[in-house]
């Protein structure tokens, strides 16, 4: 009997049907090569299944915990005129912005951090709203009936019949005249009026 070959993997995954599984297991019981291959296959799958998920780094965890902390009072509105000395936008030479932020952590600096987060959130919200607006309006414009869905030719015969069918109910007289008129040019010659 030939070896199981690719069916080893299916057997290890439990994907074979009942009869195929019984047949495969009967073969494995007498075939050392296939048995070894099945064991190896199962070992690999067990190792993959027991592998730990990658843990987040301490820095990421610290950042997440920082986000969860309660913030201080909101800072003054950004558009108000500054009352004190002008704060330089860049940190003093030799002092990294990151070191400055970490070293000065305290109640006041937490308030500033909250303000930055608020501004950041506001920016995210604005960007999100803008994206939604662009999406909605773009879709609306694209989906709006063009009104000029290509040049059109009015269906003359159909409109004449529709006219006769509708107006015969609101005028007096037999519909014979109106219907005969819709027969077309034989009833009435086409010619300029003036």
């Amino acid at each position: 009997m030939s070896h199981l070959g690719p069916r080893i993997s299916a057997l290890a995954d439990g994907e074979l049907g009942h009869q195929d599984r019984e047949r495969a297991l009967a073969h494995v019981a007498h075939c050392a090569a296939c048995r070894d291959q099945l064991e190896a296959e199962r070992a690999v799958k067990d190792a993959l299944a027991s592998a730990l998920a990658p843990a987040p780094s301490d820095r990421v965890l610290a950042s997440l915990q920082e986000l969860a902390r309660p913030g201080g009072p909101l800072p003054p509105r950004a558009r108000t005129m500054p009352q004190g000395p002008v704060v330089p936008l860049l940190p003093p030479p030799g002092r990294s912005p990151r070191g400055s932020r970490v070293d000065s952590r305290g109640p006041a600096s937490r308030g500033a951090g909250t303000a930055r987060r608020t501004v950041r959130r506001a920016r995210y919200a604005a960007a999100g709203a803008l994206s939604v607006g662009v999406l909605v309006l773009g879709t609306a414009f694209a989906a709006a009936p063009s009104g000029t869905a290509g040049p059109i030719v009015p269906p003359a015969a159909e409109l004449s019949v529709e006219h006769t069918a509708t107006t015969s109910g609101v005028t007096f007289g037999d519909p014979g005249l109106g219907v005969a008129a819709t027969f077309g040019d034989a009833f009435y010659p086409t010619a300029p009026r003036r």
Binding site: P145, G147, T148, A149, G150, P151, I152, V153, P154, L159, E162, H163, T166, T167, V170, T171, F172
Partner: peptide, 22 residues
């Protein structure tokens, strides 16, 4: 399709979005 009449004369006004071809 809008139908107008005075009981004797009849006028139908058809409106269709687009522009006349050709």
């Amino acid at each position: 399709h809008l139908s107008y009449s005075d009981g004797i004369a009849t006028v139908s006004v058809f409106e269709q979005r687009g522009r006349l071809a050709g």
